[in-house]
Amino acid sequence: MSAAPSGPHAPSAPSAPREEAVAPLIELRDVWKTYGHDESEVHALAGASLHIDDGEFVAVMGASGSGKSTCLNVLGCLDQPTGGQYLFRGVDVGKLNADQLALLRRSYLGFVFQGFNLLARTSAVENVELPLIYRRVGHAERRRRAMKALDEVGLASRATHTPAELSGGQQQRVAIARAIVTDPQMLLADEPTGNLDSARKADIMNLLVELNRKRQITIVMVTHESDMAEYATRIVHFHDGKVDSDRRVER
């Protein structure tokens, strides 16, 4: 973890990797996420518990409103649970403030969205460089690592193209390159194939499987398509804000 932040501004998380043998990567303990008050109360998560180890490729499935997206947001430290505990490498995320959460995301997490969310009118390589800017990586090093990541997703030749000049599948590859350029411990993907045709879907899934196998990046992917879930090593079903079923996939 050469890229781990240091100094007084870093969250307590950076000390975690040394405890790797002890603390699991992800542990959700009876997590609740409640919106609204009293009668209009909605429980997006209602006592969800989940344990994810390093190197897993977890597909999170469930009907809309089952809490799968909320779960991903909580795992990604974009949202704080209203009850229960979320331990990331043994660190209680619920006790971190907004800046510490940002540093945790910056240091250990990568995100891939359904809508790609690339910066418009900005070249692919500049998009991939973006997380490195916030990590204070120097310009030359930034460019080198961004090109390496683009090469990994097979788009090195399109580095100077803007999103408008790329197909949907290519845009999602750029987004994946942006997510892995920081060598994250965990990649969170929210319906990464949702906006793509079937041939591109397979491309993206194969790329994720490869990243999971070769680079040992833990992947948590939300999807509603069961054939996409089959690429994962483990499928977790959500129902009414709780984990309904949890099974290993044989590959």
Binding site: D99, A102, L109, F111, Y134
Partner: peptide, 16 residues
């Protein structure tokens, strides 16, 4: 707004 969301998700702090 979405761009800001992306920046925050990839680890930009509010101050940044």
């Amino acid at each position: 707004t979405r761009e800001i969301g992306v920046r925050l998700a990839i680890g930009a702090r509010g101050g940044e």
